[in-house]
Nucleic acid binder design. Structure first.
Length: 717
DNA sequence: TACTTAACTTAGTATGCTCAGG
DNA sequence: CCTGAGCATACTAAGTTAAGTA
């Protein structure tokens, strides 16, 4: 039903564009931002978390764990305790019974359609997490069949109830961030020249100069804005003497520095195994020390525990701030977030944190303010963590709720195209775009602070062209604008007459640089969506349409007779349909042509090999006919096998070639990671006997562990 | 403000290719 | 002619951090 998306024409060209447009930003400034407060937050039983409150309880914890472990092995221990669990937990069916309750055999804890439902997760089950989580020393104790590959039991957070009251954790302990290594001055033989003359720079100025030198090969160091911004910020780091001497960037010669860094990176590549190993070990040590935190009794991986090193800012697209100095972050800039009863991270000797706070309504461990845009950066957990996983799961549940009422919503906005109120028409047309074309919401942005990019609500008249008739189709809208990351969106879309007429109306008497939807912004739109469905926002449509498209495409494209590579090609094609819908592009790999050519050569070679094998088979057959002995029969058989094998190999290569060609400028990763309900993929794998490893790599499997664990082959999005 | 989504960069690994020696 | 070590190249995964949304 939603399969009729308009796809991009794939004339992809994320190239340049005019950024000289001046917009009149006189929109309704609706500053109200709603915070979705999930009301009805029942208290989670505090008692359950009691042992997360104190570090020193950990001993006891482990003992308990051991005890539990003994019971665990038969897999049934889950069921004992907990009286009130019964009725709610039952339907969740995580405990091995065939799941078949609700429509998909999987009841979502996020969908609270019926009032009863919200009690759903409330039964305490915390003990379970303790059992689940042991990291070492398992095998010995619980004997039995440990045979397999030591499947170190993972904590299944998705089998536990969640916090519902905005609390994100009860206990949080970590070691703080890893700072960028201090600046190492250049050896004295690496010289900087100004106006042809050697000049020794002060350490501060030298460091910033090296940032520029490292980028010398990049095209953007030639850009005016970049150079201007850089030079301005560089001068701030100079001594007054340097400042007065160095007045023209064009007279600066960084080439020796640049050569030096190139040599360094060569040297790094040429390091001996031992040296590399040493570095690897050091990294591993750092990871072990700083890469994990304890959150509510569980050790969780941190995503980005290293603080971004200083350097020159390179925004994407035509960014007004490119080239500015991104300054070094010091402990004094850092806000630590952890629980009161944890062991606080220590700042490096002789330094202090800016602040240590204990806010368990947020998920971040560390934050600092970045100096380019003044925005806040965070250290948070890995996608495999409970806190990220729950959110991800929830996102897909939201999209599935939209699925249930999307018909109604579509009918509604179609109705609204006819409204006498301009703002309602605009809202309805915008929503139509968001739904049909999977456009982003399009928040307004501060002019001059970022690259000039737009989304749906911020589209300007200049971004679309109306064609009464085009290529034999009526009412075609041609979109051409730069979206997120300055990726070009180009698409020609036939729309309904009513939409077309509305667009004409919206564009009437406007300048190219005027807003198309002058009565609309994301805040207004989302407020409206909120009324249509609880929790609905613009981006839910993207998730919904991406996931539903994958599912439809998989149904359409997969045939069970196909072999594994062919099925995987089908999967990739389905994935690709989504990527195209969402406009996920990539620069064609630099070596694309060549690697394509190599593949072709291989295919040709394989074809020849096949021909040879066939010839041989033929002659073997002929031979067998004449000789009629066992030996020659056997020979025929083995030749047959050979032919088959080669045919298969050839097929594989050809599939690979097709896949790669089709994928030239399409990036599959983004949709796979962010928009496609992983349960669809898992179910597909189960249904067609495809190993999950063919679809998800290790990281992805970690991120989607919840889905891999819970989705059955009949899962339906 | 907090959190997700995004493309790009770099590092790491797999694969393929060459050539010496069996 | 085959094997397999050593190296180059190609491909993938991981890491980085900017740019969105709400």
């Amino acid at each position: 039903m939603s399969g009729d998306h308009f796809h991009n024409d794939s004339q992809i060209d994320s190239g340049s564009r005019h950024n000289d447009s001046h917009k009149h930003k006189d929109k309704y400034k609706d500053k109200e931002h709603k915070h979705k407060d999930h009301k009805k937050d029942k208290e989670r039983e505090k008692s359950k978390y009691s042992n997360s409150e104190h570090r020193d309880s950990s001993d006891k914890k482990h003992r308990d764990k051991d005890k539990e472990r003994l019971k665990l092995k038969d897999g049934s221990s889950d069921k004992q305790k907990d009286k009130h669990r019964e009725k709610k937990k039952e339907e969740r069916s995580f405990d091995g019974k065939p799941k078949k309750e609700k429509e998909n055999g999987f009841e979502s804890p996020f969908i609270k359609s019926e009032p009863e439902n919200d009690g759903f997760y409330h039964s305490p089950k915390h003990e379970k997490s303790l059992k689940r989580e042991h990291k070492k020393g398992e095998a010995a104790t619980d004997g039995k069949k440990k045979a397999k590959k030591e499947p170190e039991e993972k904590w299944k957070w998705w089998e536990e109830e969640r916090y519902t009251d905005g609390v994100k954790w009860k206990f949080l302990e970590h070691k703080g961030p890893v700072f960028a290594p201090p600046y190492e001055p250049l050896p004295s033989n690496v010289k900087f020249y100004y106006d042809g003359k050697h000049m020794k720079l002060s350490p501060g100025a030298e460091e910033v100069a090296t940032f520029f030198a490292k980028m010398l090969d990049h095209e953007y160091t030639t850009k005016d804005v970049f150079r201007k911004n850089f030079f301005k910020d560089w001068r701030k780091e100079m001594t007054s003497e340097e400042k007065s001497k160095l007045t023209d960037l064009n007279k600066c010669d960084f080439s020796e520095m640049s050569e030096y860094f190139k040599a360094q990176s060569e040297a790094r590549k040429a390091m001996t195994k031992e040296e590399k190993l040493k570095i690897k070990e050091e990294n591993e040590r750092l990871l072990q020390e700083y890469g994990f935190c304890i959150m509510d009794n569980h050790k969780e991986r941190i995503a980005n525990f290293r603080i971004e090193p200083p350097g020159l800012f390179r925004g994407r697209g035509d960014h007004p701030k490119m080239g500015m100095l991104k300054r070094r972050i010091r402990p004094e800039d850092i806000i630590i977030n952890c629980s009161k009863d944890s062991k606080y991270p220590k700042p490096p000797p002789g330094t202090k944190w800016k602040e240590v706070r204990h806010d368990n309504k947020v998920t971040w461990l560390v934050s600092w303010t970045e100096n380019i845009q003044g925005s806040i950066k965070y250290i948070m957990l890995n996608p495999s963590s409970r806190i990220k996983g729950e959110k991800d799961w929830q996102k897909y549940e939201m999209a599935r709720r939209l699925k249930k009422c999307v018909d109604r919503i579509r009918a509604q906005y179609r109705e609204d195209w006819k409204s006498k109120e301009m703002r309602i028409r605009q809202r309805a047309v915008a929503l139509y775009f968001i739904d049909k074309l999977a456009l982003r919401a399009g928040n307004e942005k501060e002019e001059g602070e970022t690259a000039d990019t737009v989304g749906c609500c911020s589209l300007r008249v200049e971004h679309l062209t109306l064609h009464q008739e085009m290529d034999g189709q009526e009412y075609v809208v041609e979109f051409d604008f730069l979206g997120k990351d300055s990726i070009r969106y180009y698409n020609k879309v036939p729309v309904e007459k009513r939409v077309f007429k509305n667009l004409q109306l919206f564009m009437e008497d406007k300048e190219p640089e005027d807003d198309l939807f002058d009565r609309l912004n994301t805040s207004i739109l989302n407020k409206h969506l909120q009324e249509l469905m609880d929790g609905l926002t613009a981006k839910v449509f993207r998730t919904y349409n991406a996931s539903i498209t994958l599912q439809q495409q998989l149904n359409e494209l997969t045939s069970s007779e196909d072999n594994v590579p062919a099925k995987i090609l089908s999967y990739n094609r389905a994935n690709r349909a989504v990527a195209i819908l969402c406009n996920h592009q990539r620069a064609p790999p630099k070596t694309f042509e060549k690697s394509m050519q190599n593949l072709q050569t291989k295919i040709d070679a394989k074809k020849e090999q096949l021909a040879d094998a066939k010839r041989e088979l033929k002659s073997a057959k002929a031979d067998a006919k004449v000789r009629r002995d066992e030996k020659s029969k056997k020979a025929v058989e083995s030749k047959k096998k050979a032919v088959q094998r080669i045919e298969e190999q050839l097929m594989k290569l050809e599939v690979q070639a097709t896949d790669r060609e089709e994928n030239k400028q399409i990036a599959l990763g983004t949709s796979k990671l962010n928009y496609l309900d992983p349960r669809i993929s898992v179910a597909w794998c189960k249904k067609f006997g495809i190993p999950i490893e063919k679809i998800y790599n290790k990281t992805q499997r970690e991120k989607f562990a919840w889905a891999i664990d819970m989705a059955e082959k009949d899962y339906e999005f």
